[in-house]
Structures are given as structure tokens and as C-alpha cells.
Design a protein around this nucleic acid. Structure first.
Lengths: 346, 346
DNA sequence: TTGAAAGCGCTAACAG
DNA sequence: CTGTTAGCGCTTTCAA
């Protein structure tokens, strides 16, 4: 009597999967499990007779066999899991896009994504990483919903890790982040290209790579265009609608004919302010945003020209980096371009 | 010579996990693997001596042992994975919140989330489900980013499934969806409570549970308050800013003193329109939104009072349902409440 | 061209 | 109280 037909002792868990194993297929096809394994995985260099092959395929179809990925992992010694730990998948659409990009790319290479949210809570983070390690992940993507510097949880060092949308200076860990400076330059260039010379910049008051990077980009674009940088043209504002609204008067008084806003939300606030000043966009004032938050940018009146934060790409590049798929890579964080998204505010 | 010290044949894959197994711990602690298993899992009813226990714990710490969750799954016969297939995790923040809720709740019960995005593509969907089945998931959460009816992919029938934010009429599959009608009622009641009697409703033109449910809620609130329903007070509009903006004139002309908007984006458009009409919110016109899209609602001027779509809760309730944790459940879709989020537009 | 058999790391009887 | 011993489903030599 084979071991398969005697009922397993405590076996009464719900319908797991089909329950058919490779052995069942082997039996049905009249071959050994080794053979089944070979044809199911289409093993290169396996010399299996056409006939046996056919019989196996038939049996697989007949029985509705599904390989058990976990058993495969165990015997092979390495899994096809990639862990993604995020500090906030809920707050903004941003993190969702990182997940999306990571998932698609992982998928493309036969990996599946294990996700965990930590809400920025250290304990949850430790736990999440531990869980991923226990699941033998190929590596971990550690991501944050806005670009900033972090200190790496120790546990991350126990596996291959890629930082996504964040970086850790001395850690030596590979990181993938948006190219804030190029983004700032791109935004400014759009304004310059429309003929503006007196361009205001409403920057955030929050210290961050976005704050310094976008400013640097703004300056470099100005310089490249031969326009002198004027300190009096950059205005600090909280990075939300309220900040943009509040900055309106100053911007208008500065005599600028165009504004580059630190982000789309600021631009949205500014739209309101400008309207109250009786100014039309883009005729009286051109405005560029940043982030390309669809809910906002695409539906303001007029639709907002902006620069996109490449979250999807960050996620995708993160897994490529983890899998060692990208060619020669620079030292330091890998920069992902922020493309212009022209609409009608310039 | 034990089998452990001879180098494995083709073993040269990257640093997986620590690489130390239970056997190593057993050896170091001078006990058997069974004993280690018992203490590591703190098995109830296992009578292990304090001393042995201590030695095992020490060895675990010393060696940095991590249990291999996959091996555990294999030997136990069932995994701690829950699959989440989503049609669009990127487009809106909504799907992200479903993932978040599902992840938190799964976590709470010792499960981990496997996510897959399908972009609504049937082939990707089949593939995603197959992959989850192969990973022996405990069950699958099939979710959509907006509430609507779907037809269930066959493959889903092979495991326990819960529909999240969608439903399939004859399928018999459990579903968890937002209570649109209660939401509509809640929104309307807020307006009623502020003393309004002539309340307009800008509804979407898209047929959906949201369209009919919110309208039903609006009517029932009116009726409960003894206000006659007036067909001339409901206006169709595309469910975006543009729709709300376009509906402004009609709403104003209707003589309504308050409006319930199908969603926050419509409300945002209406804000613009109202402003152009020189009307103040809420003094000249009170407005209620729906969805509670943070980027918008919290930052309009004045901040928008609205009703929240409970995406986080949908995800969480989905896994609870899947795990059979919720008490007696009604036939038909399980309704999740849409709570009011009062701000300053009423 | 195919099969037998030894594991992968862990759990779960069952025997001492 | 603790150790032995079968497996879980699959891959992979190695022999036939």
C-alpha cells in the first residue's frame, strides 16, 4: 500500500490546492516523478522521449496538476520572492505606484512580491524584515513614500537590499531615487522655452533632497539660459495648497511672469490665489507644478503642466537593481529621470 | 560524517539567509531537532525541561538562527500566504489603501500578503491567480479600485476567494463592498442637520452601485426628514472636476442652498464654479463631497466635508472574511460603512 | 531515455 | 521530558 492513499493524520484543513502532486501525475502517466519534473520544467538537456512527454502533459491536463512552488523552493534552495517593505502604502498614490512598478518588473522575471507596510514604525519594520527573511526572499526593496535620507535597519544587512526613493549615506547600499535636480531643470526649462525670463520659484520649507535638488535644477536652467538667478524670486512655502495660496501675493508682487511650484498641491493653491487676483493662467502667469499627481494636475483649470515623479519606474528599477539586471552602475544613488508632462498652464 | 558538512553539489547561490538550520541549532544545544522545533514554536503541551529550553534559546541567539517559513509550510501542509489580486494599484490612492488594510489585518493573524496587479488584463489575471495557487495561498482577495460588478475568473473557484470592492451576482462568492446607500444618506443628513431643505445632488452619469446607491441614500434621508424628493434637484455630471464645474449654473439656478456631490472631485470643480458666481462656501452654498480623497478634500478652501470610502476597512474586512473570523454574516455582499468626515464646507 | 534515491528544513507522531 | 523517524512535494545526481 502506497503512502498516498492512507489518510493523513490531522489532515482536515480547507481545500488547499488541487491536492494533486507530481507523484499522482507520474503514476497516471506511467513514468517516474523525475521524468515528470523534467518535462514540467522543460529542463534543458533532458532527454525525454516524445511519447513520455506527451503522456505527462496529458496527465497534467487531466488531473489539473499545479506544481507546488514552495516545495520547489525548498529543494532548490532559493525562492522567487522579492520583499517590499514600505513605510506608508496608504497615504498617497505614490507608494502604490512604487508597488505597481516593482510588481510588474518582478513578475517579468518570474518573481513575486511580498509586501509589508510599516507605517514608519520601527518595531513593525523589524518584524516585517524578519518575516521576509524567514520566507527566504531573494532580496528586499526598502521604500519610502517621499524621497529622503534614512538610517538602515540592521536586519536589512542580512540580505540583498535596494533602497527605493530613499538613501542612506554611508551604508553602501544601492539606492534608486528620482533625479530632483534634472526635474527642477526640466520644469524651469519649460517656462524658459515659453519665453519667460522672470521666473519665480515657490520652494518648500521642508529640508529634503526635493528642496535642494529642485532649487539646484532651477538655478542651472536659468544659468544655462543666461538668466541671472535672483534670490528675491524664490519663495518659501509649506508644500501644500495652503502654502501656494499664501505665497500668491508675493509672487505677483515680484513681477514674475511665470512660477515654478515645488509641487502640484502648491500649484493648486496658487491657482486659487491667482484667480482672486484676477490673473489668468497662463496668459498673465504661467505655472509649472511637480509630482504629476493625477487627481489634481490633470483636472485643474487649466490643466497643470508639471514634471512627473517616476514612482513606477523607481519600483521597477529597484527590482532590476536587486536582480543585478542593470548594466554598469554609477557609485551613489541611481537617479531616475523626472519627465515633463506638458498640459495647459504654460 | 554528517550530511551537513559535505558541501552541497551546485550550491553557490547568493547569500540566502543565514544558512543555519534547525539541525545546527540542535547540535549546538545538544538536543534533537524535535526539541528545537518545540521550543522555537513554543509548542503548547510540549514538556521541555527549562534547561534544554535555555540551551536552545542560547544556541538560536548565538547562531542567529531563522526558521525557514517555507519548509514549515511544506511540512504542515498549509501556508500563511494570502493573495491579493488588484486590477489597478497605481491609478488611485484607493487600491493602495485596500492593500494596506489587507496587509495589516493579514499580518495581525500571522499571514503575509502576496500581491499582484493585473491592470484589468485577463491574461495577467489568470497568470496571477495561477501563481498564487502554486504558492499554496490560504485564499485570494480579488479587488477592484472602484465598486462595480464583475464576472469571476474561473481560476478563482479553485481556492477560497473573497471579492473586495466588487461583487459577482450569481457566483455565491462572499463580497465586501462599501455601503453606498448609507453613505449617501449620511452625506445628505449632514446637510439636513445644518438646516438645509433644498438640497441639490450632483450625481455621476456612470451607471454603478455608487450612482444608484448614493441616490437612494439621498432620497431616504430626505424622506426621513420629511422633505419631498424633487427630481429637478438632481443633476447628472461626469464624475470629475470638469463635471462639477459644468454643473454649477444649474445648481445655482435651482435655488438649492446646499449640494451633495457624487464625489470630491466633482465638489472641487463645483468650488471653482461657485467662486466664479461670487458665492461663498458654506454661507451661500453648503457642499458635501464623497470619497474623502485626502489630497483634495483636506485642502480645498474651505476644507471639504465629505463621506469616506472605507478602503482600508474593505481590505481588512476582506481578510477577516477569508479567514472566517467574522461572526454571523448576512447573505449577499457584506456592507462596510462610509463614515462622515466633517470639515468646513457645511 | 528513464528511474531510484537522497535530500531541502521542518513538523508530528510515537517510542523510550 | 526528549529523541527517532517518517514524511511534505519537488529537484537532482547517479545508475541503469
Amino acid at each position: 500500500m502506497s503512502t498516498t492513499d492512507q489518510p493523513k493524520p490531522g489532515a482536515d484543513h480547507p481545500k488547499n490546492t488541487s491536492g494533486i502532486t507530481m507523484r499522482d501525475v507520474a503514476k497516471a502517466a506511467g513514468v517516474s516523478v523525475a521524468t515528470v519534473s523534467h518535462v514540467v520544467n522543460d529542463k534543458p538537456g533532458s532527454r525525454i522521449g516524445e511519447d513520455a512527454k506527451r503522456r505527462v502533459h496529458e496527465a497534467v491536463a487531466e488531473l489539473g496538476y499545479r506544481p507546488n512552488a514552495l516545495a520547489k523552493t525548498l529543494s532548490q534552495g532559493h525562492s522567487r520572492f522579492i520583499g517590499l517593505v514600505a513605510d506608508a502604502i496608504a497615504t498617497t498614490p505614490f507608494a502604490g505606484q512604487i508597488i505597481h512598478g516593482a510588481q510588474d518588473e518582478a513578475w517579468r522575471h518570474g518573481y513575486v512580491l511580498l509586501v509589508a507596510n510599516t507605517d514608519g514604525n520601527t518595531a513593525a519594520e523589524e518584524e516585517a524584515i524578519a518575516m521576509m527573511l524567514e520566507h527566504q526572499v531573494r532580496g528586499i526593496l526598502y521604500s519610502t513614500w517621499f524621497h529622503h535620507e534614512i538610517t538602515v535597519p540592521d536586519a536589512l544587512l542580512q540580505t540583498d537590499t535596494v533602497l527605493v526613493d530613499c538613501y542612506a549615506a554611508g551604508s553602501g547600499l544601492p539606492a534608486v531615487v528620482p533625479d530632483e535636480e534634472q526635474g527642477g531643470r526640466t520644469a524651469t526649462e519649460a517656462l524658459l522655452a515659453a519665453g519667460h525670463r522672470r521666473i519665480a520659484f515657490v520652494n518648500t520649507t521642508t529640508p529634503s533632497p526635493a528642496q535642494t535638488g529642485r532649487l539646484a535644477g532651477y538655478r542651472s536652467a536659468l544659468q544655462a539660459a543666461g538668466v541671472a538667478f535672483d534670490d528675491a524670486l524664490v519663495f518659501p512655502a509649506s508644500p501644500e495648497q495652503e502654502g501656494g495660496y499664501a505665497a500668491t501675493a508675493e509672487v505677483v508682487d515680484s513681477g514674475a511672469t511665470a512660477v515654478f511650484c515645488h509641487n502640484d498641491r502648491v500649484a493648486m493653491g496658487l491657482y486659487d490665489g491667482l484667480r482672486e487676483h484676477g490673473l489668468r493662467i497662463p496668459d498673465d502667469m504661467a505655472v509649472m507644478g511637480f509630482d504629476n499627481q493625477d487627481v489634481i494636475a490633470a483636472h485643474l483649470r487649466p490643466p497643470l503642466s508639471t514634471v512627473a515623479l517616476p514612482h513606477y519606474e523607481l519600483g521597477a528599477a529597484g527590482v532590476r537593481r536587486l536582480l543585478g539586471l542593470d548594466a554598469a552602475l554609477p557609485a551613489g544613488p541611481q537617479l531616475i529621470a523626472c519627465p515633463a508632462v506638458p498640459r495647459h498652464s504654460v
